[in-house]
Design a binder for these strands. Structure first.
Lengths: 134, 134, 134, 134
DNA sequence: GTGGTCTAGACCACA
DNA sequence: GTGGTCTAGACCACC
């Protein structure tokens, strides 16, 4: 797993860590049960405060993406096979999607182009079904 | 134009205002040249401070979405028909799209379902081509 | 004399009128004694309030560029031949020049390029000496 | 870095702050990566409100001159060496240059004198090339 | 009437 | 410690 963050971005660092991990899971680079680096280790790699990493892990835990074990550290928890999509997840997600697509429209991106980019991005991810068959 | 904002959201109010306006433009409810409510008026409607609306309009102005005329207030500026998509717009946008789609994947949304929601949302918008033919 | 103003610019209209007139004088299109259009006429041409034109003329009068005659309206007053540069003009002007050149430098314009653009712009103007010989 | 502002000027304070910082960068007094004083600190130094400094920094950020880091505050971002001049920068800049030079002409400044002052001012700045060789 | 500027003070998020 | 957000109220510039 190779995470890169931008200390100068206006996206909070803890958010970037969380985003990168979510992306890595989506790409199938880490899967259920796989361990995440320890907070101190990750903090040292990025030369940031380990509290920041902690906050990212907290966020992931709260989102149900990882579970934190006292001895084995953080491991990926959710496997999409285990059931239907999270209830309550869709609302906020759709809101953000709507804003994002509206922006693209307003800035002149053609609808076909938008859909193309969506599918292109998704093709880099593993859908739940694919993961089962792997 | 009927904007609704949520004062209790963790999304900054000025950002919500900006998002709602971008969506309204994408839906074609307001078009090039249409005036936006005055900052003080909108602030009164939402029962918020006019500086907050000011910040939202500033953001939109900076994004090239509106222009502010001393006498007639803010009016919609950009019409996606008038040219190619904004150069430099796609970068940050794709990053956000990737994160959003990764989240959906991790939370178990099927890829087809994701694409379906994207197209459904887009169908509520007016693509540049449609606007020409209207 | 063909003035064009942009009602949507963030530069105040009265300032634009003043700027365009100053430029026209610099280019030699209007010279000492030449009359300016009446405020009401100019206001009608631009479809703006005549008070705005009034303000522009006031500014020009205050700067010593025109004189206003009750019956013949506004006429160009200053002829650079009549003497040395205005005392007191240079200070504010140099300040603005310094800021403008600093901006160019910071945004990566080469010094030679900057000088080239200055001379190119000046070549479109008539220096005082040239005006004498015309 | 020694900034001076004039509270009685008709130039907005936030604009003056922005101008002084741009000049300081042009002179090479502050360079890429150098930190700017914190908004509240600078505000205290000038005995003004920190929001005013905030606005100046916002403007600089928007112009791409600085970047704002959550922890270390604002630092100079752009180094003109790193690439060609900003595309799209020249337009508004040339307009302002034209007005400024027209004023000089109208007020009787000789063209040679104008060029002399431009080059004199520029000689106080570090051109991109000079910075490389330093 | 409109937006723009500045002040003042509060609270929160980030690191 | 830093910047970001929101509120509140004043005054000014423009049209």
């Amino acid at each position: 797993m190779n995470l890169t963050i931008d200390l100068d971005s206006d996206v909070p660092i803890y958010q970037q860590i969380r985003d990168r991990i979510v992306e890595a899971i989506a790409r199938g680079e880490i899967a259920e049960g796989d361990p995440l680096p320890s907070t101190r280790r990750l903090a040292a790699d990025f030369a940031i405060n380990f509290h920041t990493v902690n906050k990212a892990y907290d966020l992931l835990k709260q989102e149900g993406v990882i579970r934190v074990n006292r001895k084995s550290g953080a491991v990926i928890r959710r496997d999409p096979r285990t059931g239907p999509p999270d209830p309550g997840f869709a609302e906020g997600w759709e809101d953000r999607l709507r804003v994002l697509l509206a922006e693209a429209t307003v800035h002149g991106l053609d609808q076909d182009e938008v859909v193309r980019r969506c599918t292109a991005t998704l093709s880099g991810f593993r859908s739940p079904a694919e993961r089962v068959s792997r």
